[in-house]
Simulated assay, not measured.
Amino acid sequence: LWVYSNEAINSPFPVVFQFHLTDTPSQMYITVDTAFLQLYECTMGAGVPPPSASFFVNNVGGEDPMEFFVTWESDLFTVTVFSPTAPSGIMINAIYLGLPVGTYLDTIVFYAPTSIDPIDTVIVRYDVIPGTETPEIWLSGYNYVIPAQENTGSIHPVNHEVNNRHGGCMDWYIVEEVPWMYPTETSGTVPSVFGLGANVDGFVFGEYPDSFFVFSDEATNSPQQVDVLFRVWRFHGDMDYNCEINVADLTYMVAYLFLSGPGPEPTYFVGDLNCDHMINVEDLTYFVEYLFNHGPIPCGNPY
């Protein structure tokens, strides 16, 4: 059958009719009319994946196998079809989009060419609801060690996550008086990621322990304390973190490279003597030359 239109750019358009004659036709049967997906506003909660729903496409008639096809156009979910012939499981996985509270509807279309009822649909109901439990602060970490070399200015922030353990919205804010640390954000609504930056200028070799607090006026476990330790180092090659470079450090490097010994303290880059962002035999050779043959000082050292 050809459909014509004097105005359409795709005229004529073919429509194919398929005639299938059988004594025992297949009959598509889908085990649900509506699939339900329920999500919380703002966040599902710490480590909680978006929900899913499952159902089956069956052939309750004759003529096996019954092939079927699935189509959908939605940003709300994905569809997994476990087999192209019935019986087959169907899995719908919600996509978390941060939508406001409300009900959102979409449709999945099933087409089985040989079924006496060849087309069927499943409505997907995507409900976003407020949190159902009192918020509780969840943090991605409670102890951070931040190493930095003397007189190198600001260092790249370490990411820190704040969330509501139970799902739903929660506002938060930070209270801190850490002289060397600067958070990239001091308040927000979950889920949030902010950086813990540091400025080493003015701080000499040593350790600087401190802490800050994450508050939420809505959470049952507010405030939460986060401990931070600033470990300032001076020399590349000071493997044992005592502010000296000597044979003990060379022995430490040999053990690290060849005997599965501990790594350099307080950070891997202390052992990078030639500034190639690696620790290997070249650094060991550089170290020997520096200690015993008046070779150049380790790259990046003040003296």
Rank of each mutant, 00 (worst) to 15 (best):
F110K: 08
N246A: 08
A94V: 03
E150H: 03
A255L: 13
V247A: 10
E176S: 10
T107A: 08
G202Q: 14
S26K: 01
N242E: 06
T285M: 09
P266H: 00
L37K: 05
T103Y: 12
V247Y: 02
G202S: 09
G300V: 03
G89R: 13
M28V: 03
G89H: 08
P130S: 11
F13M: 12
F110R: 12
F110C: 08
N293A: 15
G202F: 12
S222I: 12
V60T: 15
P65C: 09
W233R: 06
V124K: 02
F235W: 15
R165G: 04
P100R: 12
T121Q: 10
E150R: 08
V228R: 03
T78E: 13
I119H: 02
Y144M: 05
V101T: 14
F13H: 12
V247M: 00
G45P: 07
Q18D: 14
P157Q: 05
V15K: 11
D283V: 06
R234S: 12
H236V: 00
N93E: 10
F68E: 06
T251V: 05
G98T: 15
G300N: 06
P87M: 10
P113S: 11
T24M: 11
P262C: 05
T71R: 10
F205W: 08
V232C: 01
A46W: 14
Y96Q: 08
D127I: 08
Y252K: 08
E136N: 04
A86P: 07
V204W: 11
Y290L: 03
G271R: 04
Q149S: 04
L37T: 06
T31K: 03
T251K: 14
S211M: 11
N6C: 03
V128Q: 05
V60P: 01
T251N: 06
R125I: 02
T152F: 01
L139M: 08
E185D: 13
I279H: 02
V79A: 12
T78R: 09
D171A: 05
L250N: 01
V101P: 07
G131K: 01
T186W: 08
Q149C: 05
G98R: 14
W2M: 14
H166L: 10
G271V: 10
A53C: 07
E73H: 13
D75W: 08
P262D: 02
F230Y: 14
I92A: 12
F230M: 13
D238Q: 13
I155V: 09
F258M: 02
S140H: 01
I129V: 15
